[in-house]
Design a protein around this nucleic acid. Structure first.
Lengths: 126, 126
DNA sequence: GCTTGACTTAGAGCTTGCTCTAAGTGATAA
DNA sequence: TTATCACTTAGAGCAAGCTCTAAGTCAAGC
């Protein structure tokens, strides 16, 4: 698979795909004999995984570390697990805050719908 | 309330508070006779509201527009409602994606706990 | 064999959202 | 009254995460 195809499939620009590879956010992609990127299934799986993690806001730095650990093989299993747990916990906290904000927005919208809006400073209890 | 007190109360740097005011992310804060910021309850409520929205990732630009509309008074009620609904919907979408990522991380962690890890490319189905 | 066009690399540039610096003011304490 | 210290403004600087540019390579079609 060429970079253009992968770019379309995962909706990431070719620039972004090269950038991710350059900084070690995905392992080095396979190449044709002439040096052109040829994404194998394994490469695509990394792209998909990283895209998913990045779209949820996991920091590039943490993901680079995960990829690096992964390439070190079995000896890094504990470190990888620790890293995943840390990021999972951070994500869970963010999720909760966003859930609260979502409810607050819904509450505000409902007031607008009912024509019940008061001045901003009366609305901020929730 | 001085900027330092507000800064501590809401855990936002004084620089950030000034920046937010400068760009119109919160309305102009009240001043003492000598021109020093004196946050009244109304000002604090805005700070709290904006902090909450920002911490959930609502873009500054959209929030500036909300504040601007708010200051235009009753005539902007429909536009404000529309803006809130848009941002609510975007937030809901992000939340869903993050929920999925959280589950994926939990699944991965569980596999690490069970010593069931396979090569990365076998794990990406979920 | 020459042109076209997608690919390559290295590195500069851009956007968002702060964060810091410089220069100045003004109220309080010694 | 003079030093201190928190405040003020305007604007520069910084970090993360892309995105774009320049210069070059290579395979395929005319």
């Amino acid at each position: 698979m060429t970079i253009t195809e992968v770019s379309k499939k995962y909706e990431l620009s070719a620039d972004t795909l090269r950038y991710y590879e350059r900084i070690g956010l995905i392992p080095t992609v396979h190449r044709t004999s002439s040096g052109i990127r040829d994404y194998l299934e394994e490469d695509c799986n990394w792209v998909e995984f990283i895209k998913c993690m990045r779209s949820s806001g996991l920091p590039i730095e943490a993901l680079i570390e995960y990829v690096t650990l992964f390439q070190e093989g079995d000896s890094s299993v504990d470190a990888r697990k620790k890293l995943l747990i840390e990021q999972r916990d951070l994500l869970a906290i963010k999720l909760e805050a966003m859930q609260t904000t979502l409810e607050r927005l819904n509450y505000k919208i409902k007031r607008y719908e009912n024509g019940l809006m008061l001045k901003e400073n009366k609305l901020t209890k929730l």
